[in-house]
Amino acid sequence: MPLTRRLRLAVLPVALSLVLAACGGGASSNAPASPCDTAPDFPRRPIEMIVPWAAGGGTDSVARFIGTQLAERLGTQVNVVNRTGGGGVVGHSAIATARPDGTTIGMATVEITMMHWQGLTELTYEQLTPIGLVNSDPAGVTVRSDAPWADVKQLLAEAGAQPGATTASGTGRGGIWDLARAGMLLEAGLPADAIRWVPSEGAAPALQELVAGGVHVSTASLVENQTMIQAGRAKALAVMAEERLPNFPDVPTLREQGLDFTMAAWRGITGPADLPEDVVGELSCHLDAIVHSPAYEEFMGTAGFGIVWRNAQEFGAYLAEQDAEKGEIMRAAGLAA
Rank of each mutant, 00 (worst) to 15 (best):
L7K: 11
R8Q: 15
V11H: 00
V11W: 00
V14T: 11
V14E: 01
A15L: 15
L16P: 00
L16G: 14
L20C: 13
A21W: 11
A22N: 06
S28D: 05
S29Q: 08
P32V: 08
P35F: 02
P35S: 09
T38P: 06
P40H: 04
P40F: 05
D41G: 08
P43I: 00
V51S: 14
V51F: 12
A55E: 15
G67Y: 10
Q69N: 11
L70E: 14
Q77A: 12
G85R: 06
V89F: 04
V89D: 08
G91I: 04
H92T: 06
A96G: 06
A98C: 06
I105E: 06
A108C: 10
V110G: 11
M114H: 02
M115W: 01
M115K: 12
G119D: 12
T121F: 06
L123R: 14
T124N: 04
T124G: 03
Q127F: 00
T129P: 07
I131C: 09
G132P: 05
S136N: 10
S136A: 15
T142Q: 06
A147M: 08
P148C: 02
L156T: 04
A157G: 02
G160A: 10
Q162L: 05
Q162E: 09
P163I: 02
P163G: 07
T166D: 01
T167I: 08
A168L: 07
S169W: 07
S169F: 05
T171N: 13
G172Q: 08
R173W: 13
R173P: 05
G174N: 10
W177Y: 15
A182P: 05
G183M: 08
E187Y: 03
A188Q: 07
D193F: 05
D193E: 12
E201M: 05
A203Y: 05
A204K: 15
P205S: 06
G214E: 14
H216A: 14
L222V: 10
N225A: 13
N225M: 11
M228N: 13
R233K: 15
A234Y: 02
A234R: 08
K235L: 07
A236L: 11
A238D: 07
A238N: 05
V239E: 12
E242A: 15
P246Y: 11
T253C: 04
L254T: 14
R255V: 05
D260C: 01
A264L: 02
R267N: 14
G268K: 07
D274A: 13
V279W: 07
G281A: 10
E282L: 00
L283P: 11
L287M: 10
S293H: 05
E297S: 12
F299P: 02
A303L: 09
G304A: 02
V308S: 07
Q313R: 09
Q313Y: 00
E314C: 04
G334Y: 02
G334F: 01
G334Q: 03
L335I: 04
A336T: 02
A337D: 09
